[in-house]
Each structure stands twice: as C-alpha cells, then as structure tokens.
C-alpha cells in the first residue's frame, strides 16, 4: 500500500523515469568495465610501447613505434611478400599438425584400449618425448635433406606426442563404471567404445590438440630459423639481419595471431562437439 502511494506521487514518477535510463547506462558501464578488466592491461602495454618509443624512453631502433610495425605489416600483406610466408608457414605446420592428429588420435585410442600394447610402448614413447625434437632436427636433416620434408617431419614429430599421450590418458581415464553400465545392457566391446569411450575421450583429446598446436608453431619457427628461405620464422631472422626491425615485429605479430587463431578454432570446435557440457544450453 505504502509503496503504491510513493510510486504514484511526483517524486516516484521522477524516480521511475530515472530508472528507465539507468539500466541501459548500467549495462553499458558494465560492458565497458568488462572490457577494461579483460583488455585494459594489453591496451595499456601497447600504449606505453607506442608513447615510450616515440618519446625515446625505449630505444626506437629495437622497439619501433606500433604504428610503424602496423605499417610494415600492412605493406607485407598487401604487397604480398609476407603473405607468401604466411602461406608457406601455414602449409608446413598445417600438414604436420594434421598428420600428427591423424596418427596420434587413432593410435592413442587403440593404445588406451589395449593395456598390453600401452604398457609395451609407454617406455619408448616417454623416451622419445623427452628427447627434444630440435636436438633430433640434424638427424632428420641427414635423413631427409634440408628441404620441406625434414621441416614438416620435425614439426610432426614434436606435435605427435602431446595429442598421442593426451588421447591415451583420456581413454584410460574413462569412468569404468560407465563402461560396466554399457556392458550390462549387452553392448559389445566395439559398441561400448563408440558410444561411451569415444565421446568421453573428446575433452582430453582436445587438451592434447591445443598443446600440439602450440608445439607445432614453436617447432615451425625454430625449423624456419635454421636453413630456410621462406616462412614467418625465416622472416623474423631475415628482417633482423637486414635491420628491418618493424618488419621483424610484423612477422612476430603474425605468428602470435596465428597461434591465437589456431587455439580459437580448436576451442570453438571443442565447444561444438561438447555442447552437452555448455551451461548456455540450460
């Protein structure tokens, strides 16, 4: 009763009008706040770089202003010189990553299912994994030459282990109780694998895939810095030799963006495959 009286009064009316605007304002402020907490530090870092470089607080010969880096990036992409490097780098890491996934996931699913095989292969896998792929790169060069094959192979080699081991681990971790449940309904082994083990292994497989993607980029750059004449890794080195520092940072920036894009694609794919775990479906 009291509330109604206040609401119908002139003061109440004014307040209602205010309330109508306030939620919109609050929403905008809220979103702005989200943006600031999420990207504030990044934006601040870029701004500090830019100002610092222009003002000479940091050495502009080593850290050129952001606008010059972006200009070099634009030139490289429009002029096509960096674009070709992006394409060749994508091809190398893409082929290696695809091959690692195509071999690692099925092999991991198989090994995780058959404990005897897993036990027999685990020591050698651990040994290979602990041997740095880069240390083996000279061996691969000896075997495969200094061309594309050895590059793709060293990336493939390093990329295989994260996805393989994550898949094995994922299959082994599948809840025994669910497998037993499936068996009590008369499911055959292959049916249980398809209906229970495989879906349950998807999240750990994606953890492995994301690790593999990061590894692929790392090895891509390293292999392109050793005896390559193209690719983003080569451009970083080459630009540095020729003292084209903005171009060097442009190539570094492209590599970072490549990594972010790869991760974003994998996250999106996992979200889509694991829609059941998404609270937004509620």
């Amino acid at each position: 009763m009291t509330i109604q009286e206040i609401d119908s009064g002139p003061v109440g009316a004014a307040r209602t009008g205010e309330d109508r605007i306030a939620p919109t304002l609050r929403a905008v402020a809220g979103r702005a706040g989200d943006f600031v907490t999420r990207y504030g530090v990044l934006v601040g870092f870029i701004a500090l770089w830019q100002v610092g470089s222009v003002q000479g607080w940091i050495n502009p010969a080593v850290f050129p202003p952001i606008d010059r880096i972006l200009a070099a990036l634009w030139d490289g992409l429009v002029g096509g010189s960096l674009l070709e490097d992006v394409a060749i780098s994508l091809q190398r890491s893409g082929i290696a990553f695809a091959a690692a996934a195509a071999l690692g996931i099925p092999l991991g699913l198989f090994m995780g299912q058959i404990p005897v095989v897993e036990r027999a292969l685990d020591p050698i896998l651990q040994f290979f994994r602990q041997t740095s792929a880069l240390a083996l790169y000279p061996v691969f060069i000896l075997l495969l030459g200094l061309g594309e094959t050895s590059k793709v192979f060293v990336i493939f080699w390093a990329t295989l282990f994260p996805v393989l081991l994550a898949t094995i681990g994922g299959v082994k971790e599948v809840d025994r109780k669910l497998i037993e449940m499936s068996a009590t309904f008369g499911a055959r082994r292959l049916t249980t694998f398809r209906r229970v083990v495989l879906p349950a292994s998807i999240p750990p497989i994606f953890v492995g895939l994301r690790l593999s993607a990061t590894t692929a980029l790392l090895l891509l750059i390293a292999s392109e810095m050793i005896g390559a004449r193209s690719g983003l890794g080569f451009q970083v080195m080459n630009a540095q030799y020729n003292f084209q520092i903005p171009k060097m940072f442009a190539a570094i920036l492209l590599l970072a963006l490549l990594g972010l894009a790869a991760n974003a694609i994998l996250v999106a794919l996992q979200r889509w495959l694991c829609r059941w775990a998404d609270p937004a479906n509620s």
């Binding site: 109780k177 669910l178 037993e180 449940m181 499936s182 009590t184 309904f185 008369g186 499911a187 055959r188 049916t191 249980t192 209906r195 229970v196 879906p199 349950a200 694991c274 059941w276 775990a277």
Partner: peptide, 26 residues
C-alpha cells in the same frame, strides 16, 4: 538389467538418449 547406486548416466546424452541407450546398443 542393473541399477547401480549411482545413476551412471552418459553426460553427453539427453534424458531421452540415456533411456534409449540400453535398447540402441542392442
């Protein structure tokens, strides 16, 4: 058919999918 102490549902299937599971695997 066995009913365990825990429901043992498959988290990636809906209620319908879970209930139909026993028949489907047969």
């Amino acid at each position: 058919a066995v009913i365990f102490q825990e429901p043992r549902l498959l988290p990636w299937l809906t209620v319908l999918g879970n209930v139909a599971f026993g028949l489907e695997v047969r």
